[in-house]
Computed example of a mutant assay.
Amino acid sequence: MRFNPKASLDTGRVSDRGGSGLGGGSNGIPIPGGVKAGGGAGMLIVLIIVLAASCLGGNGGSGLPGGMLGQGVGTDTTRMGDSERYANCQTGADANEDVDCARVAVENSLYTYWSDLFERGGGTFRPATMSTFSGATSTGCGQASSQVGPFYCPADQGIYLDTTFFAEVLEGQLGGQGGDFVEPYVLAHEYGHHVQNLLGTMGKVRTQRGADSDAVRLELQADCYAGMWTRAAEGTGEGVAIIEDLDEGDITEALDSAKAVGDDRIQKRSGGRVDKEGWTHGSSEQRMRWFSTGYETGDLEACDTFSASSL
Rank of each mutant, 00 (worst) to 15 (best):
D304M: 14
I242Q: 11
D245C: 04
A302C: 09
H281P: 06
E296F: 03
G262E: 06
F291K: 01
T280P: 07
V261E: 11
G282E: 01
A254F: 00
R265T: 10
D245T: 05
A308T: 13
V274H: 06
A260C: 12
K268E: 15
G278Q: 08
E285S: 15
C303N: 07
G249A: 10
G271E: 09
G298R: 09
Y295A: 12
W290T: 08
Q286M: 11
S283F: 01
I266P: 03
A308I: 14
R287T: 05
W290H: 11
D275A: 13
I251Q: 09
F306P: 04
G272Q: 09
E253T: 03
S270K: 02
G298L: 07
R287A: 14
V261Y: 12
S292F: 00
E285M: 07
R273W: 12
L246F: 07
S283T: 11
G271H: 07
L300V: 10
K259W: 00
D247Y: 00
S292K: 01
K259H: 06
S270W: 02
R287N: 15
E301T: 07
G272W: 04
G249N: 14
F291T: 00
I266A: 03
E285C: 11
A258Q: 09
A254N: 01
R269T: 04
L300W: 13
G294F: 00
S309A: 14
E296N: 13
D250W: 00
D245R: 15
D299F: 02
R269S: 11
D263M: 10
G272N: 09
G278N: 03
A308S: 13
R269M: 13
A260L: 07
D263W: 10
D263C: 05
R289I: 01
